[in-house]
Amino acid sequence: MREGTYIKQPNRALQVYAIVFLIVLYLPVLFIPLFSFNDSIYVRFPMQGLTFHWYADLWTRDTVWAALKNSLTVGLWVSVISTCLGVVAARAITRYQMPGQNAIVTFAMLPLIVPGVIFGVALLVLVSRLGIPLSLYTVGFGHLIICLPFAIATLLPRFEGFDRSMEEASADLGENGWWTFWRVTFPMVAPGIVASLLLTFTISFDEFIMTFFLSGTDTTLPIYIWTQLRFPREFPAVLALSTIILALSFVMVFVALWIGRLGAVRDQVKATNEGA
């Protein structure tokens, strides 16, 4: 079924453009998995045949496992902490009238806009002046600054869409603040929290520039890839590792956006609730 209004009549040229656009958007990234199965150390056509050799090779490298462990550890901590910080911020901003709350939100969003290099060197200067040795902790703190705007941006609409009268109804029905949070507030914002956890984890897992400036001897996977890029013979292994990271990111983000979409459906319910 198509909507036949004059304005919305199908435009063949645009449709073709859209499809080409999507192909161009995805194609470059798809070359990475493609060549990761190529039986040659050269990334070039014609391809030499299918192999899983590069993946098997990765499996045996202790440095990869160590970097993976570091990435996961940092990612888990950063996603949990940044989501918690995002929850209290979103809750405070939507629940209370505070002077300067817009300024705070804008300030928290700075890392989204300001080039990562600047925050990287600024934090590097801070920790070095404080005499803190570079470690996974400094990396985690850097990631936290990058992830926080994403957590807040994901959670704020959920808390904004949250209807105050829901909590009042709960209080009216005999539940105190604690139980109201667990029985009403939390379940209603849960999609936002899960989405925030997944997105911040992915961002931390993929983060490069902060890690580049703030990591000590322990590295994460993106840094490992960066160091391996200098060696042409390591290219296929890097491709294999990149494929794994890409696949993981795609799945996590797709789930996050899908859950966010469930939240959007609930918003519609709420809208009909109000509009009925």
Binding site: E168, A169, L173, N176, M188, N273
Partner: peptide, 17 residues
């Protein structure tokens, strides 16, 4: 509110979604 012997029907009903 949660200890008062009153209950309320809200303007938008506040049905938990």
């Amino acid at each position: 509110p949660f200890q008062r012997p009153v209950n309320m029907v809200f303007q938008n009903y506040a049905i938990f979604p």
